[in-house]
């Protein structure tokens, strides 16, 4: 028939072109030009890019759980079975009407960790990200935590402000996206500049 042959041949050829040749070509380009990104933008404990998995403390682009008081907390994550499960991204999908209770418990946890801090809590710090893997939070969210961290790490607020500023990414070209702080990088440097205090303090309770 006039239709069967082109159907099969056309499908096979287009599969070959778009399903094999195209991804392979892009992979080739990636290996030559963007090897670090192509392998997941891994970073080592100094915050430097690496492609060596064993040296990696994580990915520049993937958030991690930070819920101990000496770290800048990352945003809540709704992945399962544990937060920041980078093998199974997920949002909370909680509807707006029933979100109140969930947010309330997150707010309470923040207050508990820093009872003296009565400034308003930035919304992104108490709402789960879409991916559950958000590597960032707003500058306001980081700033809010300065009082707690300066207390625990005995650091100047100024020093922390500077640290936050160093890991703040502005909008791309001043136009695209939002101004954010990379939490993993921030905490990595935090550990380096003030290798604390955390030792002298009893490890804070989780959650």
């Amino acid at each position: 028939m006039k239709i069967i042959r082109p159907t099969i041949i056309c499908f096979l050829l287009l599969s070959l072109i778009t399903g094999i040749a195209y991804p392979l070509a892009i992979t080739l380009i990636a290996n030559v030009g963007f090897r670090h990104q192509a392998e997941g933008s891994l970073i080592d404990k100094n915050g430097r890019p690496t492609v060596d998995e064993s040296a990696a403390v994580g990915s520049f682009l993937i958030g991690q759980t930070f819920d101990q008081p000496q770290y800048f907390w990352s945003r809540p994550s709704a992945t399962s079975p544990m937060p920041y499960n980078a093998a199974a991204s997920s949002g909370s999908n909680i509807g707006p009407s029933i979100l109140g209770d969930t947010v309330k418990s997150r707010v309470d946890a923040l207050h508990q960790a820093d009872p003296a801090n009565s400034s308003p809590i930035p919304i992104d710090l108490v709402t789960a990200s879409g991916s559950g893997l958000d590597p960032h939070e707003s500058v306001a969210a980081a700033d809010y935590q300065i009082s707690r961290i300066s207390r625990i790490r005995r650091m100047d607020a100024e020093q922390l402000h500077a640290l936050i500023a160093r890991h703040t990414q502005d909008r791309a070209f001043g136009l695209f996206g939002e101004k954010v702080v990379n939490v993993l990088e921030l905490n990595l440097e935090l550990d380096q500049v003030a290798s604390i205090a955390a030792a002298s303090q009893p490890a804070a309770t989780t959650k």
């Binding site: 945003r75 949002g91 909370s92 999908n93 909680i94 707006p96 009407s97 979100l99 109140g100 947010v103 309330k104 707010v107 308003p120 809590i121 930035p122 919304i123 992104d124 710090l125 108490v126 709402t127 789960a128 990200s129 879409g130 991916s131 958000d134 590597p135 960032h136 939070e137 707003s138 500058v139 306001a140 969210a141 700033d143 990414q169 996206g177 939002e178 101004k179 954010v180």
Partner: peptide
Amino acid sequence: NPTLNALADQHETALQPGGNMEGKEARLG
């Protein structure tokens, strides 16, 4: 989200995009 006004700061400022951030990425707002 009007139900969260009492709990957190949802206003847009120089330091945060604010708004309904549940299910949204910080870099995207």
